[in-house]
């Protein structure tokens, strides 16, 4: 998080993590498509010139929190391929919250777990206690055959700590729910740490409702489910 008191500007960094091809970029593309144009900036894809290796994607959102406070949310994706760990570590630096995008297909269960181990390792290496990082988990690709069933995921989710979302990112289903879920736990964490409500007179509940309104979440969800 970066706080500029003079400019009354708060910047939050959220990172979409997960194995290769689990739909991290697709999540960002869907958000870009679904939220209003005043809120979302251009989606930037950073790739190297020679081998088309992805460095990261970046989607900036800017939200007016009221009371003169401008909240900028920067959504990043990491490259999922195992070999790009150096880039992943760079992108993970300074993250305020992480959305872990898992692939629902049964065959991908192991690479989901491997990527999660890698996330924990990279956080630990940066001196961050993994359990202290605001984290939501999204099971993507719910429309594919041979996936882990809702019952299975629900049963596991009820035993885990993190909020779990189900999504079909290609169609935009569950994408904004995941984002808002992450925003909520991230903001609560920042509130605990920095007492933002005392500094700006903004309480988390109404503020998140305001963000939801700015992003046009309700309308977008309606559009998607139709």
């Amino acid at each position: 998080m970066q706080l500029d008191f003079k400019a009354r500007e708060l910047t939050i960094k959220l990172v979409y993590y997960g194995p290769a091809l689990s739909g991290k970029t697709t999540n960002l593309q869907a958000i870009h498509r679904l939220v209003s144009a005043e809120v979302a900036g251009r989606l930037m894809t950073l790739e190297t010139q020679d081998d088309r290796t992805l460095f990261f994607d970046l989607l900036p959102l800017s939200l007016n929190a009221g009371k003169g406070l401008q909240v900028r949310v920067k959504l990043f994706t990491v490259p999922g391929q195992v070999i790009h760990n150096a880039t992943r570590r760079l992108v993970l630096q300074g993250a305020d919250g992480v959305a872990f995008i898992a692939d629902s297909q049964r065959t991908e269960t192991k690479s989901n777990a491997a990527s999660f181990v890698n996330l924990r390792q990279n956080l630990t290496d940066q001196g961050i206690e993994p359990a202290s990082m605001p984290l939501v988990i999204q099971f993507n690709k719910r429309d594919l055959p041979d996936i882990r069933t809702d019952d299975e995921i629900d049963a596991l989710a009820s035993r885990g700590k993190e909020p779990v979302f189900k999504a079909v990112a290609l169609r935009g289903v569950g994408v904004l729910e995941t984002l808002m879920g992450l925003m909520e736990i991230t903001w609560n964490r920042l509130e605990d740490e920095h007492r933002l409500s005392e500094k700006f007179g903004l309480t988390p509940g109404p503020l998140l409702a305001e963000f939801e309104r700015h992003l046009g979440v309700a309308e977008a969800i309606q559009r998607v489910s139709r």
Partner: peptide, 28 residues
């Protein structure tokens, strides 16, 4: 202007990332 800034920003970030990831790989 937005397009110019966006392109410049992206090119600059790319080069910065190149340098940073080379540095990171070198460390490894």
């Amino acid at each position: 202007l937005d397009l110019i800034i966006f392109s410049g920003h992206r090119a600059f970030l790319t080069s910065q990332m190149h340098v940073a990831s080379v540095r990171e790989s070198y460390k490894v």
